[in-house]
Structure formats: C-alpha cells, structure tokens
C-alpha cells in the first residue's frame, strides 16, 4: 500500500529563502486562473447565446448587414492579434529576466490595446450618433452588451497591464512579478480568443 505514497522531492534550483521553496504557489495560481478563465468563458457564452437568439430581432431597426463595417472590425482584429504577439514577446523577455525588454514590449502591447479600444469606442459613438443606440432594438442591445463586455475586459486588462508594468519597473523580475506576468498574459490571450469568436459570429456572419 505504501507504493501509493507521493513524496515531495524538493527542487534543487528552488529559492529556499521564500516561504514556498517548491514554487507550489506558481502552479496553484496558474491553475486557479485557468479556472477563473473558464468562468469568464461561461459568462461570455451566455452573452453569445443571447446574441444568437436576439440578432434577428431588429424591431424595424437596421440589421447587422446595414450597420457593420467589416474593414473596421478587421483592423481591430489585426491590432488585437498583434498585441497578443507583443505580449508573448514580453513573456519571452520575462523568461530571460530582461526587465527593460519586458517594459518595452508591454508598452507596445498597451498602445495596441488602447488603439483597439479607441476604434471600438469610435464605432460605438458612430452607432449612437446615427440613432442606432442600444435602446433601438433587442438586436442592438445584445450587440452592445456582448462587444461592450469584451471591451470592458480589455479596459480592465489595460489597467492591469499598467499595474504589472509598474511592479516590474520597481521590483524587477521576481517570483511574484513573474507569476503576475504569466497570469496577465493568460488573460490577454484569452481576450484575443474571445474577440476571434466575436469577429466570426458577430461581424463576419452578420455581414454575409
């Protein structure tokens, strides 16, 4: 029966000055963050399902075909995809412990994320100014809610990125800041994946 016993073998490379020399915190945090991402995924799924049910209920208002500009959405997609690449570059720099490179790549990621938000807000104001706000029809309600929820996530991501960058700036790459960078990059890539679905289901299928 003793065969089943698991023995913890301490990692020889581990930093024993920390309370957690086996770095359990890192794997526990990353696993927990994946769980959080799954809850967020279900959260978005509810909004996607709602959009699927309501996207034809234009209530006499304009439909997706009349409203959406595929070129803007495509540019937004490209910007967000690029920001995922630069975020990945920041992570590669973090693995090598290059503080300045991390900050530089995160700055680029931040700019890309901010320009994505600027484009999205521009699209929203354009819709509202042309009389097609969220109060116009159930279709537009579900559109604003779905895309707006993603936008809210990106905005939170930008704030988070700023905080993590400041931490790297002041403290360098430590066990804590590295873990936070990993978790942040998971969040950022997740938002990219969600956007791919929005681009496909809302914009592409809405225009076709």
């Amino acid at each position: 029966m003793t065969d089943f016993t698991i023995h913890h073998t301490p990692d020889p490379q581990a930093d024993t000055s920390l309370p957690d020399p086996n770095q359990d915190t890192f794997f526990t945090t990353v696993l927990g963050f994946w769980m959080y991402l799954m809850t967020d995924c279900v959260f978005f799924a509810a909004f996607f399902a709602t959009y699927a049910v309501l996207h034809n209920n234009t209530f006499g208002g304009p439909s997706s075909r009349e409203l959406f500009s595929l070129s803007t959405a495509f540019i937004e997609t490209m910007i967000l995809l690029c920001s995922s690449v630069t975020c990945g570059m920041a992570m590669l720099a973090a693995l090598r412990g290059k503080k300045n490179q991390i900050i530089a790549w995160l700055a680029v990621t931040f700019l890309l994320g901010a320009s994505f938000m600027a484009l999205e807000l521009h699209e929203f104001t354009h819709l509202v100014e042309s009389g097609n706000s969220w109060t116009r029809s159930a279709f537009l309600s579900s559109f604003f809610a779905l895309v707006g929820t993603h936008g809210l996530h990106v905005s939170i991501g930008l704030l988070w990125m700023f905080v993590v960058t400041m931490q790297v700036f002041y403290w360098g790459v430590t066990v804590d800041t590295f873990r936070r960078l990993v978790v942040f990059s998971l969040f950022w890539h997740f938002l990219d994946v969600v956007w791919i679905f929005i681009f496909t289901f809302v914009y592409l299928m809405g225009v076709i």
Binding site: T50, L54, N57, T58, F59, T135, A138, S141, A145, T149
Partner: peptide, 21 residues
C-alpha cells in the same frame, strides 16, 4: 447583468416592446 442593463440603460433583452425575448 442583462436585467440590470434593461432596467438602468433601457436595453431590450427581455422587453418584448423592443424585440426582446
């Protein structure tokens, strides 16, 4: 969130008078 948006921002997720379900 959807019920909140309906009540606070006048969206139409669940109001039939706006095409909601």
């Amino acid at each position: 969130c959807m019920l909140t948006l309906d009540r606070y921002l006048g969206m139409h997720f669940f109001t039939v008078s706006g095409g909601g379900n």
